[in-house]
Simulated assay, not measured.
Amino acid sequence: MACFTAAVAQAIVVHGIKKTVEKNHKSLALKLQKLVTLLLSGSFLLMIEHIWHGEITFYYPFLTAMNSPEDTKEMLYEILTVGGCIDVAITSVWFLLYCLSDLVKSVKTVKEA
Rank of each mutant, 00 (worst) to 15 (best):
A2P: 08
F4V: 14
T5Y: 03
T5S: 15
T5A: 12
A7D: 13
A9K: 07
Q10E: 14
H15T: 12
G16R: 11
K18Q: 12
K18M: 13
K19W: 00
N24Q: 10
H25K: 05
H25A: 08
K26R: 11
K26C: 12
L30D: 09
K31G: 00
K34N: 06
S41K: 13
S41Q: 14
S41M: 14
G42E: 14
L45E: 15
L46N: 09
L46W: 03
L46K: 12
M47D: 12
M47N: 12
H50S: 11
H50M: 12
I51T: 08
I51Y: 06
G54R: 08
G54E: 09
I56Q: 01
Y60L: 03
L63H: 05
A65H: 00
N67E: 07
N67D: 02
P69S: 01
D71Y: 03
K73T: 10
E78N: 13
E78I: 11
V82S: 07
G83H: 02
G83L: 01
G84H: 07
V88C: 12
A89S: 09
I90E: 01
T91H: 08
S92H: 04
S92M: 09
V93I: 15
W94Y: 00
W94L: 06
W94H: 04
L96T: 08
L97K: 05
C99R: 04
D102I: 00
L103K: 10
V104S: 13
K105W: 03
K105F: 00
S106T: 01
K108D: 04
T109S: 04
V110R: 03
K111F: 08
K111H: 11
E112F: 08
A113G: 13
A113P: 04
